[in-house]
Amino acid sequence: MNASTTAVETTPSVVRELVLKDLRIMKIPSICYWLAGIGSIVLALLWGDAAGTIAFILFISAIFGAGVHAAMQTITEERREQNLPFIMSLPITIADYTRAKMLANLLLVGGIWLTLSAASYVIFIGDVMPSGTIPLMTIILVAVLLAYVIILATTMVFQGIAPAITAIVAANLGNQAFIWWIASFHAVRSTVNGTEAVWNATYLTVLGAQIGAIVVLVGLVFYAQSRKTEFL
């Protein structure tokens, strides 16, 4: 009896091991995506305007690619390859599994997103680009993160390949459309070339909506998972 009570208390350590396992599995691909992101920054630095668009697309794709790869590898593949019964036979619940997967994915992709974003701020702002681009750049970067969270939530809740691919295509197209759409705003065009970062109401509203959507999606994942009785 004593053994089982201590055992129950150590569930967080199982979640930790599950997270570490996924990080180990994703180590090499993650490093590759991260290096690609760094490469895009170097590209923009060396050739400036000439390679600007390509560097930008490469930069966004590196983060997006890391996200898609992580979600597909750690969630969809695990189910498709029938590793799930192995994992679920461990002393965990569906909620623990969900926690572990969300943690591993958000740590991994969030880490890549955060370091690459920070690097681009430090390197470009002030020197290459005017400070007025900070709000737009932030919104675009958060949009990439949001697109990833949509993919993560879909793969997590629906588990199959078809919903995952639908989410990837939709998130990718939606993201592109969003960037063009946001760039067409007057409130954006009038401030983006300024030397000061102007956080007007448009920027703040969009950013608030994005962060709200991310929080709601993560919450929805946990809610949907808690209702499942049939998991394998």
Binding site: A3, S4, A7, I25, E81, N83, P85, S89, P91, I92
Partner: peptide, 28 residues
């Protein structure tokens, strides 16, 4: 001694399960 599925965590510490449709990680 544990009610399932409510007590599954406590029970699974002491159960070893292998099924025909269970696979280990192929690339590992």
């Amino acid at each position: 001694g544990h009610d399932m599925p409510a007590g599954q965590v406590a029970a699974k510490w002491n159960i070893g399960f292998v099924s025909e449709d269970m696979r280990l990680y192929g690339h590992r």
